[in-house]
């Protein structure tokens, strides 16, 4: 561990004169002089902006339906709050494990980096497992999206959120499987990939932080 885990490499700036024949995408590791951030980070923030719009439309729909409805159930009376609380802790915990993975990769500790990536992936499985129990129970009580507007919004919002969790898990699995290869050859780029995937994962956590009280508690 050299304490300078994030070090540049010549190809980062598209230098073709270093004996490379392939065309490399510039600024994959180091900040562009005009934006101040590397391309991947700007890309993920723009993507997250579009995600805010996607979930924002659903939150807006929920607010409109709830304020317009003659009556609206309290989530805490019909949904499983203890399970959802555990899921909140699982997701918050996974946000910490992914950022610890990134921190240890910056420290040059691949072993711990991979361990925390694996823990993040396991948290994802844990979250989905609990969600599956919740859905199964609801289905067994004949509470489907078609039951009423409450369940329609509950299934759409938690379902879309669950799809985002699955998406993040696929990326974490890919990062884990390719960690040895990429960390050995393009360490900084791999570390940045973990950072931007982490940003996405934190957003998924952030959405749940609002879904939990709105759907389950209020």
């Amino acid at each position: 561990m050299d304490g300078h885990a994030l070090t540049p490499h010549a190809g980062d700036h598209g230098d073709a004169h270093a004996g490379h024949h392939e065309i490399e995408i510039p600024y994959t590791v180091h900040p562009r002089p005009d934006t101040g951030v590397y391309n991947g980070k700007l890309g993920i923030w723009l993507f997250l902006a579009s995600e805010v719009m996607l979930f924002g439309a659903l939150f807006s729909t929920l607010v409109l339906l709830r304020t317009s409805a003659p009556s609206w159930p309290h989530g805490k009376e019909i949904l499983n709050v203890p399970l959802a609380t555990v899921n909140t802790f699982v997701l918050i915990g996974s946000s910490v494990t992914v950022i610890l993975a990134w921190a240890y990769l910056r420290l040059g500790d691949l072993k711990k980096g991979k361990l925390f990536l694996l823990l993040t992936l396991l948290c994802g499985f844990g979250f989905l497992g609990i969600k599956t129990i919740e859905y199964t129970t609801k289905f067994s009580h004949h509470q489907f999206p078609s039951t009423n507007n409450f369940f329609a919004t509950y299934y759409v919002m938690t379902g879309l959120h669950g799809l985002h969790v699955i998406g993040g898990m696929i990326v974490f699995a890919y990062l884990l499987l390719t960690a040895d290869k990429w960390y050995g050859t393009k360490r900084d780029q791999f570390t940045n990939r973990v950072e931007v995937t982490g940003l996405y994962w934190h957003f998924v956590d952030l959405v749940w932080i609002f879904l939990f009280p709105i759907l389950y508690l209020l």
């Binding site: 317009s68 003659p70 009556s71 159930p73 019909i78 039951t147 009423n148 507007n149």
Partner: peptide
């Protein structure tokens, strides 16, 4: 008048059922 938000009721009896 008809669309005031109301207090909770059992899930399968309220909300705008489809």
């Amino acid at each position: 008048k008809t669309n005031k938000p109301a207090a909770a009721a059992p899930a399968n009896q309220h909300g705008s059922s489809h």
